[in-house]
Design a protein around this nucleic acid. Structure first.
Lengths: 106, 106
DNA sequence: TGGTTATTTGGTTATATTACCAAATAACAT
DNA sequence: ATGTTATTTGGTAATATAACCAAATAACCA
């Protein structure tokens, strides 16, 4: 069933797009260590509060992170922990790409 | 070193963006089974030849696939095989999201 | 050489994403 | 109630992506 496979690829693309941004990848990697509130990301990343909040909501809507409101603060934590392995895979691609590029100068 | 981490996240984002499209995910999954020429994808996906070719070149530039020209045909094959595990991770997220949604009706 | 097939590249237009500002909401403290 | 802090939401402008068409390349065949 070709069309079914395509539809599944589309569903996967939605989740991948949610991750495919410098800021959101950084967030996922930080959240892999420990939960964080929005304000901590604002401080660490230095973008507008609204920008950070929107990035987190993209991750939340994709089902990658989850939310816990405590007092005035909103804490985000990593829900899809397999993401970590995946980012290692990406890191290997980067290394392999760099090796190829540097081998051009030998 | 916060800025170094951010730069690394940016490099990862480039590769993720290369994968984050319905058609390109489908391509990677097909290539995980076997190499394919551009024309086979054109037939299977049904988009314009130029569209398919551009998608494959995005994957190639990211270092996810590799190229082998033989005769008139250009064959693409999967280079970053760890992609497959990753797409399984995404599939688990989809399942978990669906379970949560359906539990709302119980 | 000229024709055919396979693929890539350039151009254009439509659509999607992102960032910031301003305003709204929510919880807590005074 | 009022003020303060933390966060989300709506609007807008800039930028990035995607799809198609047409034209350019490249390899092979007659």
């Amino acid at each position: 069933m070709k069309e079914t496979n395509m539809a599944l690829s589309g569903a996967k693309a939605k989740i991948l797009k949610a991750l495919a941004h410098q800021t959101r990848i950084y967030m996922v990697e930080e959240l892999a260590k420990d939960e964080k509130c929005v304000c901590e990301f604002v401080e660490a990343i230095g973008s507008d509060f609204s920008t950070i909040s929107k990035h987190l909501s993209v991750l939340k809507n994709a089902g990658i992170v989850q939310v816990d409101k405590r007092g005035q603060k909103v804490f985000y934590s990593l829900k899809a922990t397999c993401m970590t392995n995946f980012l290692d895979c990406i890191e290997n691609i980067i290394k392999s790409n760099l090796e190829e590029q540097s081998s051009m100068f030998k």
